[in-house]
Design a protein around this nucleic acid. Structure first.
Lengths: 166, 166
DNA sequence: CATATTACGTCAGCCTTGTTGACATTCCAA
DNA sequence: TTGGAATGTCAACAAGGCTGACGTAATATG
Protein backbone atom coordinates (compact mmCIF):
# COMPACT_ATOMS: atom_id res chain seq x y z
CA UNK A 1 0.00 0.00 0.00
CA UNK A 2 2.64 2.44 1.01
CA UNK A 3 4.60 2.84 -2.18
CA UNK A 4 5.36 6.49 -1.66
CA UNK A 5 8.62 7.09 0.16
CA UNK A 6 8.17 5.92 3.72
CA UNK A 7 10.03 3.60 6.01
CA UNK A 8 8.00 0.67 4.77
CA UNK A 9 8.66 1.65 1.16
CA UNK A 10 8.61 -0.98 -1.56
CA UNK A 11 11.66 -0.76 -3.76
CA UNK A 12 10.29 -2.88 -6.57
CA UNK A 13 10.51 0.11 -8.91
CA UNK A 14 14.30 0.00 -8.60
CA UNK A 15 14.84 -3.43 -10.14
CA UNK A 16 17.26 -3.73 -13.05
CA UNK A 17 14.33 -4.46 -15.36
CA UNK A 18 12.67 -1.18 -14.44
CA UNK A 19 15.90 0.73 -14.78
CA UNK A 20 16.56 -0.80 -18.17
CA UNK A 21 13.09 0.11 -19.30
CA UNK A 22 13.71 3.68 -18.19
CA UNK A 23 16.99 3.76 -20.10
CA UNK A 24 15.40 2.49 -23.28
CA UNK A 25 12.50 4.89 -22.88
CA UNK A 26 14.99 7.76 -22.74
CA UNK A 27 16.68 6.53 -25.89
CA UNK A 28 13.53 6.22 -27.99
CA UNK A 29 11.83 9.30 -26.54
CA UNK A 30 14.82 11.51 -27.28
CA UNK A 31 14.55 10.53 -30.91
CA UNK A 32 10.95 11.71 -30.89
CA UNK A 33 11.93 14.82 -29.02
CA UNK A 34 14.34 15.90 -31.76
CA UNK A 35 12.50 14.53 -34.79
CA UNK A 36 10.30 17.54 -35.60
CA UNK A 37 12.99 20.21 -35.18
CA UNK A 38 15.41 18.09 -37.20
CA UNK A 39 13.04 18.10 -40.16
CA UNK A 40 12.56 21.85 -40.00
CA UNK A 41 16.27 22.48 -39.58
CA UNK A 42 17.09 20.32 -42.58
CA UNK A 43 14.76 22.45 -44.70
CA UNK A 44 16.72 25.53 -43.68
CA UNK A 45 20.12 23.89 -44.05
CA UNK A 46 20.89 23.89 -40.35
CA UNK A 47 21.58 21.25 -37.74
CA UNK A 48 20.85 20.61 -34.09
CA UNK A 49 23.75 22.76 -33.00
CA UNK A 50 22.06 25.76 -34.62
CA UNK A 51 18.83 24.91 -32.86
CA UNK A 52 20.49 24.83 -29.48
CA UNK A 53 22.19 28.17 -30.03
CA UNK A 54 19.03 29.83 -31.29
CA UNK A 55 17.00 28.38 -28.44
CA UNK A 56 19.19 29.69 -25.66
CA UNK A 57 19.81 33.06 -27.28
CA UNK A 58 16.05 33.46 -27.46
CA UNK A 59 15.76 32.35 -23.89
CA UNK A 60 18.30 34.76 -22.44
CA UNK A 61 18.71 37.59 -24.93
CA UNK A 62 21.96 39.46 -24.62
CA UNK A 63 23.76 36.45 -23.24
CA UNK A 64 27.51 36.39 -23.82
CA UNK A 65 29.41 33.81 -25.80
CA UNK A 66 31.03 32.49 -22.63
CA UNK A 67 27.65 32.14 -21.00
CA UNK A 68 26.36 30.19 -23.96
CA UNK A 69 29.45 27.97 -23.90
CA UNK A 70 28.71 27.04 -20.30
CA UNK A 71 25.10 26.21 -21.09
CA UNK A 72 25.84 24.19 -24.20
CA UNK A 73 28.95 22.47 -22.90
CA UNK A 74 30.92 22.57 -26.16
CA UNK A 75 34.17 24.20 -27.17
CA UNK A 76 34.26 27.79 -28.34
CA UNK A 77 35.48 26.63 -31.74
CA UNK A 78 32.43 24.46 -32.17
CA UNK A 79 30.05 27.15 -31.03
CA UNK A 80 31.82 29.79 -33.06
CA UNK A 81 31.36 27.90 -36.28
CA UNK A 82 27.64 27.69 -35.69
CA UNK A 83 27.36 31.25 -34.47
CA UNK A 84 29.26 32.57 -37.48
CA UNK A 85 26.81 31.07 -39.95
CA UNK A 86 23.84 32.32 -37.93
CA UNK A 87 25.29 35.84 -37.90
CA UNK A 88 26.19 35.71 -41.61
CA UNK A 89 22.67 34.54 -42.41
CA UNK A 90 21.20 37.39 -40.39
CA UNK A 91 19.52 35.30 -37.71
CA UNK A 92 21.70 36.42 -34.83
CA UNK A 93 23.14 39.80 -33.99
CA UNK A 94 26.36 40.10 -32.01
CA UNK A 95 26.83 43.37 -30.15
CA UNK A 96 30.07 44.39 -28.49
CA UNK A 97 29.58 44.82 -24.74
CA UNK A 98 29.09 48.34 -23.47
CA UNK A 99 30.75 47.81 -20.12
CA UNK A 100 33.20 45.13 -21.18
CA UNK A 101 34.01 45.50 -24.83
CA UNK A 102 35.60 42.05 -25.02
CA UNK A 103 32.25 40.43 -24.54
CA UNK A 104 29.75 39.88 -27.32
CA UNK A 105 26.10 39.99 -26.46
CA UNK A 106 23.91 37.82 -28.63
CA UNK A 107 20.41 38.61 -29.84
CA UNK A 108 18.01 37.08 -32.31
CA UNK A 109 16.99 39.21 -35.26
CA UNK A 110 13.38 39.08 -36.46
CA UNK A 111 14.45 36.40 -38.90
CA UNK A 112 16.13 34.46 -36.11
CA UNK A 113 13.10 34.81 -33.88
CA UNK A 114 10.93 33.49 -36.71
CA UNK A 115 13.00 30.31 -37.00
CA UNK A 116 13.11 29.90 -33.23
CA UNK A 117 9.38 30.21 -33.12
CA UNK A 118 8.89 27.63 -35.84
CA UNK A 119 11.21 25.19 -34.10
CA UNK A 120 9.89 25.66 -30.62
CA UNK A 121 6.27 25.50 -31.70
CA UNK A 122 6.92 22.11 -33.29
CA UNK A 123 8.70 20.88 -30.22
CA UNK A 124 6.06 22.26 -27.88
CA UNK A 125 3.31 20.62 -29.90
CA UNK A 126 4.82 17.20 -29.33
CA UNK A 127 5.49 17.91 -25.67
CA UNK A 128 1.96 19.25 -25.27
CA UNK A 129 0.46 16.10 -26.73
CA UNK A 130 2.63 13.91 -24.51
CA UNK A 131 1.79 15.96 -21.42
CA UNK A 132 -1.90 15.87 -22.22
CA UNK A 133 -1.85 12.11 -22.75
CA UNK A 134 0.02 11.45 -19.56
CA UNK A 135 -1.72 13.94 -17.28
CA UNK A 136 -0.49 16.45 -14.70
CA UNK A 137 0.69 13.95 -12.11
CA UNK A 138 2.78 12.14 -14.67
CA UNK A 139 4.26 15.43 -15.83
CA UNK A 140 5.36 16.24 -12.30
CA UNK A 141 7.05 12.84 -12.08
CA UNK A 142 8.63 13.27 -15.50
CA UNK A 143 10.24 16.49 -14.40
CA UNK A 144 11.34 15.14 -11.04
CA UNK A 145 13.15 12.19 -12.60
CA UNK A 146 14.79 14.28 -15.32
CA UNK A 147 16.06 16.83 -12.84
CA UNK A 148 17.45 14.09 -10.63
CA UNK A 149 19.26 12.66 -13.63
CA UNK A 150 21.26 15.80 -14.40
CA UNK A 151 24.85 16.30 -13.35
CA UNK A 152 25.20 18.98 -10.67
CA UNK A 153 26.66 21.40 -13.23
CA UNK A 154 23.89 20.71 -15.71
CA UNK A 155 21.32 21.12 -12.95
CA UNK A 156 22.90 24.46 -12.12
CA UNK A 157 22.62 25.60 -15.74
CA UNK A 158 19.08 24.34 -15.93
CA UNK A 159 18.06 26.21 -12.79
CA UNK A 160 19.79 29.36 -13.99
CA UNK A 161 17.88 29.29 -17.25
CA UNK A 162 14.60 28.70 -15.44
CA UNK A 163 15.17 31.72 -13.21
CA UNK A 164 15.17 34.02 -16.21
CA UNK A 165 11.49 33.40 -16.80
CA UNK A 166 10.37 34.45 -13.33
CA UNK B 1 -8.56 19.93 -6.29
CA UNK B 2 -9.27 17.74 -9.24
CA UNK B 3 -6.07 18.01 -11.21
CA UNK B 4 -6.09 14.42 -12.37
CA UNK B 5 -7.82 13.88 -15.69
CA UNK B 6 -11.49 14.47 -15.22
CA UNK B 7 -14.06 16.60 -16.90
CA UNK B 8 -13.24 19.46 -14.55
CA UNK B 9 -9.56 19.07 -15.28
CA UNK B 10 -7.20 22.02 -14.89
CA UNK B 11 -4.96 22.49 -17.88
CA UNK B 12 -2.44 24.74 -16.19
CA UNK B 13 0.24 22.11 -16.71
CA UNK B 14 -0.01 22.64 -20.46
CA UNK B 15 1.09 26.28 -20.52
CA UNK B 16 3.98 27.21 -22.79
CA UNK B 17 6.15 27.85 -19.74
CA UNK B 18 5.60 24.32 -18.51
CA UNK B 19 6.25 22.87 -21.95
CA UNK B 20 9.43 24.86 -22.31
CA UNK B 21 10.60 23.69 -18.92
CA UNK B 22 9.96 20.11 -20.00
CA UNK B 23 11.91 20.67 -23.22
CA UNK B 24 14.88 22.11 -21.40
CA UNK B 25 14.74 19.34 -18.81
CA UNK B 26 14.98 16.79 -21.64
CA UNK B 27 17.99 18.59 -23.06
CA UNK B 28 19.98 18.76 -19.83
CA UNK B 29 18.90 15.35 -18.56
CA UNK B 30 19.95 13.62 -21.76
CA UNK B 31 23.44 14.99 -21.25
CA UNK B 32 23.49 13.39 -17.81
CA UNK B 33 22.03 10.22 -19.24
CA UNK B 34 24.92 9.78 -21.67
CA UNK B 35 27.72 11.26 -19.56
CA UNK B 36 28.87 8.12 -17.72
CA UNK B 37 28.82 5.76 -20.72
CA UNK B 38 30.59 8.40 -22.81
CA UNK B 39 33.49 8.45 -20.38
CA UNK B 40 33.79 4.66 -20.36
CA UNK B 41 33.49 4.46 -24.14
CA UNK B 42 36.22 7.05 -24.60
CA UNK B 43 38.57 4.91 -22.49
CA UNK B 44 37.95 2.00 -24.84
CA UNK B 45 38.16 4.07 -28.00
CA UNK B 46 34.50 3.71 -28.86
CA UNK B 47 31.59 6.11 -29.28
CA UNK B 48 27.88 6.23 -28.61
CA UNK B 49 27.13 4.33 -31.78
CA UNK B 50 29.06 1.35 -30.43
CA UNK B 51 27.17 1.59 -27.17
CA UNK B 52 23.83 1.46 -28.92
CA UNK B 53 24.81 -1.56 -30.99
CA UNK B 54 26.22 -3.44 -28.01
CA UNK B 55 23.18 -2.59 -25.91
CA UNK B 56 20.62 -3.95 -28.32
CA UNK B 57 22.65 -7.00 -29.30
CA UNK B 58 22.82 -7.85 -25.61
CA UNK B 59 19.14 -7.21 -25.31
CA UNK B 60 18.03 -9.43 -28.17
CA UNK B 61 20.87 -11.88 -28.80
CA UNK B 62 20.86 -13.39 -32.26
CA UNK B 63 19.14 -10.36 -33.74
CA UNK B 64 19.76 -9.80 -37.43
CA UNK B 65 21.44 -6.80 -38.99
CA UNK B 66 18.16 -5.70 -40.51
CA UNK B 67 16.45 -5.91 -37.17
CA UNK B 68 19.12 -3.80 -35.57
CA UNK B 69 18.84 -1.26 -38.37
CA UNK B 70 15.14 -0.86 -37.64
CA UNK B 71 15.76 -0.37 -33.93
CA UNK B 72 18.58 2.09 -34.31
CA UNK B 73 17.14 4.01 -37.22
CA UNK B 74 20.40 4.51 -39.10
CA UNK B 75 21.66 3.43 -42.51
CA UNK B 76 23.30 0.08 -43.00
CA UNK B 77 26.53 1.84 -43.96
CA UNK B 78 26.62 3.64 -40.64
CA UNK B 79 25.80 0.53 -38.66
CA UNK B 80 28.21 -1.58 -40.65
CA UNK B 81 31.13 0.68 -39.85
CA UNK B 82 30.44 0.27 -36.15
CA UNK B 83 29.70 -3.43 -36.36
CA UNK B 84 32.86 -4.12 -38.31
CA UNK B 85 35.08 -2.67 -35.61
CA UNK B 86 33.19 -4.52 -32.90
CA UNK B 87 33.62 -7.81 -34.76
CA UNK B 88 37.28 -7.14 -35.52
CA UNK B 89 37.88 -6.31 -31.86
CA UNK B 90 36.19 -9.53 -30.80
CA UNK B 91 33.25 -7.99 -28.96
CA UNK B 92 30.58 -9.19 -31.35
CA UNK B 93 30.18 -12.45 -33.21
CA UNK B 94 28.31 -12.61 -36.50
CA UNK B 95 26.88 -16.01 -37.42
CA UNK B 96 25.38 -16.89 -40.79
CA UNK B 97 21.71 -17.79 -40.42
CA UNK B 98 20.81 -21.48 -40.36
CA UNK B 99 17.44 -21.15 -41.99
CA UNK B 100 18.15 -18.13 -44.14
CA UNK B 101 21.83 -17.99 -44.99
CA UNK B 102 21.59 -14.37 -46.15
CA UNK B 103 21.00 -13.23 -42.61
CA UNK B 104 23.69 -12.62 -40.01
CA UNK B 105 22.81 -13.22 -36.40
CA UNK B 106 24.65 -11.06 -33.91
CA UNK B 107 25.88 -12.09 -30.48
CA UNK B 108 28.11 -10.58 -27.84
CA UNK B 109 31.27 -12.46 -26.98
CA UNK B 110 32.39 -12.61 -23.35
CA UNK B 111 34.49 -9.55 -24.02
CA UNK B 112 31.52 -7.77 -25.54
CA UNK B 113 29.31 -8.76 -22.64
CA UNK B 114 31.91 -7.36 -20.25
CA UNK B 115 31.85 -3.97 -21.91
CA UNK B 116 28.07 -4.00 -22.08
CA UNK B 117 27.93 -4.77 -18.40
CA UNK B 118 30.30 -1.97 -17.54
CA UNK B 119 28.31 0.52 -19.60
CA UNK B 120 24.89 -0.52 -18.45
CA UNK B 121 25.89 -0.68 -14.80
CA UNK B 122 27.08 2.92 -14.99
CA UNK B 123 23.90 4.00 -16.71
CA UNK B 124 21.71 2.02 -14.34
CA UNK B 125 23.46 3.54 -11.35
CA UNK B 126 22.50 7.01 -12.45
CA UNK B 127 18.98 5.96 -13.32
CA UNK B 128 18.67 4.17 -9.99
CA UNK B 129 19.72 7.26 -8.08
CA UNK B 130 17.29 9.42 -10.04
CA UNK B 131 14.45 6.92 -9.56
CA UNK B 132 15.17 6.64 -5.85
CA UNK B 133 15.24 10.41 -5.42
CA UNK B 134 12.02 10.90 -7.31
CA UNK B 135 10.02 7.98 -5.95
CA UNK B 136 7.81 5.35 -7.58
CA UNK B 137 4.94 7.64 -8.53
CA UNK B 138 7.32 10.00 -10.30
CA UNK B 139 8.89 7.07 -12.12
CA UNK B 140 5.51 6.00 -13.43
CA UNK B 141 4.91 9.51 -14.70
CA UNK B 142 8.36 9.71 -16.21
CA UNK B 143 7.70 6.59 -18.24
CA UNK B 144 4.23 7.66 -19.26
CA UNK B 145 5.43 10.98 -20.66
CA UNK B 146 8.42 9.45 -22.45
CA UNK B 147 6.30 6.80 -24.10
CA UNK B 148 3.80 9.41 -25.20
CA UNK B 149 6.64 11.39 -26.74
CA UNK B 150 7.81 8.65 -29.08
CA UNK B 151 6.90 8.46 -32.75
CA UNK B 152 4.59 5.55 -33.50
CA UNK B 153 7.43 3.65 -35.17
CA UNK B 154 9.74 4.27 -32.24
CA UNK B 155 7.01 3.23 -29.84
CA UNK B 156 6.64 0.04 -31.81
CA UNK B 157 10.35 -0.71 -31.57
CA UNK B 158 10.32 0.14 -27.88
CA UNK B 159 7.41 -2.20 -27.21
CA UNK B 160 9.03 -4.95 -29.27
CA UNK B 161 12.22 -4.73 -27.26
CA UNK B 162 10.29 -4.76 -23.99
CA UNK B 163 8.48 -7.92 -25.00
CA UNK B 164 11.72 -9.85 -25.20
CA UNK B 165 12.18 -9.66 -21.45
CA UNK B 166 8.84 -11.24 -20.60
C1' DC C 1 13.77 -23.02 -64.11
C1' DA C 2 14.43 -18.08 -64.78
C1' DT C 3 14.08 -13.98 -62.66
C1' DA C 4 13.21 -10.71 -59.11
C1' DT C 5 13.96 -9.49 -54.54
C1' DT C 6 16.17 -9.53 -50.12
C1' DA C 7 20.11 -9.32 -46.90
C1' DC C 8 24.35 -7.98 -46.38
C1' DG C 9 28.88 -5.93 -47.24
C1' DT C 10 31.72 -2.42 -49.21
C1' DC C 11 33.74 1.60 -51.69
C1' DA C 12 33.66 6.50 -52.32
C1' DG C 13 32.43 10.89 -51.05
C1' DC C 14 30.04 14.42 -48.45
C1' DC C 15 28.23 16.93 -44.19
C1' DT C 16 27.72 18.28 -39.33
C1' DT C 17 29.58 18.72 -35.16
C1' DG C 18 32.55 17.60 -31.91
C1' DT C 19 37.76 17.74 -30.54
C1' DT C 20 43.07 19.91 -29.82
C1' DG C 21 46.46 23.13 -30.47
C1' DA C 22 48.25 27.48 -31.75
C1' DC C 23 48.05 32.27 -32.23
C1' DA C 24 46.26 37.28 -32.54
C1' DT C 25 43.55 40.89 -30.70
C1' DT C 26 41.29 43.55 -27.47
C1' DC C 27 40.72 45.26 -23.12
C1' DC C 28 39.90 45.01 -17.98
C1' DA C 29 42.11 45.06 -13.63
C1' DA C 30 45.74 44.77 -10.39
C1' DT D 1 52.17 48.65 -17.46
C1' DT D 2 51.56 44.20 -17.65
C1' DG D 3 49.09 39.77 -16.87
C1' DG D 4 45.23 37.40 -17.80
C1' DA D 5 40.52 37.05 -19.55
C1' DA D 6 37.32 37.05 -23.48
C1' DT D 7 36.95 36.45 -28.06
C1' DG D 8 37.92 35.13 -32.80
C1' DT D 9 40.21 32.36 -36.16
C1' DC D 10 43.15 28.99 -38.62
C1' DA D 11 44.33 24.21 -39.26
C1' DA D 12 43.78 19.46 -38.70
C1' DC D 13 41.39 15.56 -37.27
C1' DA D 14 37.67 12.05 -35.84
C1' DA D 15 33.08 10.18 -35.10
C1' DG D 16 29.13 9.21 -37.09
C1' DG D 17 25.45 10.54 -39.79
C1' DC D 18 24.10 10.61 -45.02
C1' DT D 19 23.62 9.25 -50.41
C1' DG D 20 24.71 6.54 -54.34
C1' DA D 21 26.50 2.64 -56.58
C1' DC D 22 27.89 -1.98 -56.98
C1' DG D 23 28.64 -7.01 -55.90
C1' DT D 24 27.35 -11.45 -54.02
C1' DA D 25 24.78 -14.91 -52.18
C1' DA D 26 20.46 -16.84 -51.15
C1' DT D 27 15.64 -16.88 -51.09
C1' DA D 28 11.06 -16.08 -53.14
C1' DT D 29 8.16 -15.80 -56.90
C1' DG D 30 6.46 -16.14 -61.40
Amino acid sequence: MDNTRGSGESLLFLTDAHLRRGIEAMFFAYRGFTADPDRILADHGYGRAHHRAVHFINRTPGTTVNNLLAILGVTKQSLNRVLRTLIEDGLVESRVGRRDKRERHLFLTDKGAALESELSEAQRARMRAAFRDAGPQAVAGFRAVLEAMMDPEQKHQFDAVQEVSE
